[in-house]
């Protein structure tokens, strides 16, 4: 009896709160992450699917841990892109985490791959590097870390699908020149350091031709072992 009364009292109190809140929020923006990240959408698309600008990456469906690491790096200035550094400068960790979770949980369809502008030979070289690497030059295959389906692995390894060649090429270039860095051991810097400009063009072009797999979600943590240590993907 007492329990029922108490439950009723709680229910009434809850209703009262909802009513009060509703009255207050009638003229307020929606209390959603979608409304809060509208500042991201002109460049990354409404659901993080990307826009027509080939240098702005798709965010949707990437592992939340990867996205969070990038938000932290842009906020501190470690990853340099002034419009991003400026937007994030005074946002607290839990909010950046919520933003990362939001875009990680969005799953707009992957775009149709655009026809490639490079020759068949270059694409073949890209495919070889991405799927088998080049042991003679200490270059691991992309798939050995980013997954056989190139969909990435939770929590820190991004998928490489749905990105345009210009973006991938610019990022690999930034890793090579040391303008993009990550937590030590900085595996991508090591890998990109072994790539030539021609390798970068070939890999970026081939990756951009890949069609969406049936399941584009990143695989769970620990699905496969990484070939070497990676600061962004703690064991």
């Amino acid at each position: 009896m007492f329990a029922r009364d108490a439950a009723l009292a709680v229910a009434i109190a809850t209703l009262a709160t909802i009513d009060g809140t509703a009255a207050q929020t009638a003229n307020q923006p929606p209390d959603t992450m979608a409304a809060r990240v509208e500042a991201c959408t002109p460049c990354h698309g409404n659901k993080g699917e990307g826009t027509s600008d080939v240098y702005f990456p798709r965010l949707a469906g990437k592992p939340a841990g990867y996205l969070y690491n990038q938000l932290l790096a842009f906020r501190s200035g470690r990853r340099k892109y002034p419009p991003m550094n400026y937007l994030l400068e005074f946002l607290p960790d839990p909010y950046l985490e919520a933003m990362a979770e939001y875009f990680a949980s969005e799953h707009p369809p992957l775009p149709q791959p655009a026809p490639s502008e490079v020759s068949k030979e270059v694409l073949a070289q890209g495919e070889l590097l991405a799927t088998s690497g080049d042991a003679g030059r200490n270059i691991p295959a992309c798939v050995s870390c980013h997954g056989p389906g190139l969909t990435g692995m939770q929590p820190g390894i991004p998928g490489l699908l749905g990105l345009r060649a210009a973006y991938v090429s610019a990022q690999l270039g930034a890793w090579r020149y040391g303008t993009r860095t990550a937590k030590s051991p900085d595996c991508m810097q090591l890998v990109a350091g072994h790539l030539t400009e021609a390798d970068v063009t070939a890999v970026a072009a081939w990756l951009a031709t890949r069609a969406a797999p049936t399941n584009p979600a990143p695989v769970p943590k620990g699905t496969y072992a990484l070939p070497f240590g990676c600061g962004s993907q703690p064991n």
């Binding site: 923006p29 409304a35 809060r36 990240v37 509208e38 500042a39 991201c40 959408t41 002109p42 460049c43 419009p83 937007l87 946002l91 607290p92 839990p94 909010y95 919520a98």
Partner: peptide, 9 residues
């Protein structure tokens, strides 16, 4: 703690 933002135009 979770401010709304203005998009860059």
């Amino acid at each position: 703690p979770m401010p709304y933002g203005m998009p860059p135009f």
